[in-house]
């Protein structure tokens, strides 16, 4: 199916015997100034599982995601190890972590066509203009967006944009998925579809997925374990 599958399986199984495959957080402590936000948080997300972190705004769930992704604002101080299939990635810059991220908004680049957006994400390992174009077209088909390559992203519906955003993320062959309330801005009926679309892809690719949300329905649909943070 997707290149992502092959890539996920290539990943070296646990070099450190102690930590299992998937996305593992060990002793994450985050503070802003003197005020502690998270203290010694541990989390194991096996491949193909969706683990949900819940909590009210200000509980630090988005901050946790930013730390895992490598985007933590300089105002925070943070400690703790993030391991991906046994290898620590905390020291890596964001662009080398190979974590796919979806935010509340689809964040398709408004100056690029839908296809160019996906091509921006597509792994550089896929070379050759034709091959890359074909790979993107294939992904568009998969998302029910066949023939949308040259479309302006602004002309797509909310659901189409959400699916295009997921495809852009998956084409980069991520090794794990981070979801920052990606369904909260969608209409209720659409939300269910997109949720199903995202989770099924994550499971099929065996991606460990960390979902941050304040919506219980998200957590129920994810089906994995749930960690609740307090404000």
């Amino acid at each position: 199916m997707m290149d992502g599958v092959a890539l996920t399986k290539q990943i070296n199984p646990a070099r450190e015997e102690a930590s299992p495959a998937g996305l593992v957080l060990r002793g994450i402590t985050i503070a802003i100034g003197e005020a502690p936000l998270l203290s010694r948080l541990d989390l194991d997300i096996p491949p193909g599982d969706v683990v949900t972190v819940m909590g009210p705004s200000g509980s630090g769930k988005s901050t946790l995601l930013a730390y895992v992704a490598g985007f933590l604002d300089k105002a925070f101080t943070a400690r703790g190890e993030v391991l991906l299939d046994g290898a620590p990635i905390t020291a890596l810059p964001a662009q080398q972590r190979r974590l796919g991220i979806l935010f509340q908004d689809d964040l398709l680049f408004p100056h690029l066509s839908v296809g160019a957006n996906l091509a921006f994400g597509l792994d550089a390992a896929v070379t050759g203009r034709r091959a890359r174009r074909a790979r993107v077209e294939e992904a568009l088909d998969q998302a029910g967006l066949g023939g949308f390559y040259d479309r302006d992203p602004a002309t797509l519906s909310g659901g189409q944009r959400a699916r295009a955003a997921l495809m852009r993320t998956l084409l980069a062959s991520p090794r794990a998925l981070l979801l920052d309330e990606p369904f909260s801005k969608l209409d209720r009926p659409l939300r269910k579809d997109i949720r199903e679309f995202v989770f099924s892809h994550a499971r099929a690719l065996g991606l460990p997925t960390l979902l941050v949300t304040h919506d219980h329905e998200d957590a129920d649909a994810a089906g994995g374990s749930v960690l609740t943070l307090k404000a």
Binding site: F71, A94, Q95, I101, D105, L107, F120, A172
Partner: peptide, 16 residues
């Protein structure tokens, strides 16, 4: 400019 655009791009592997 919404910083999440740059973050999305970085997560897709784009260099600074």
């Amino acid at each position: 400019l919404d910083p999440r655009y740059a973050r999305s791009a970085a997560a897709l592997g784009a260099s600074a």
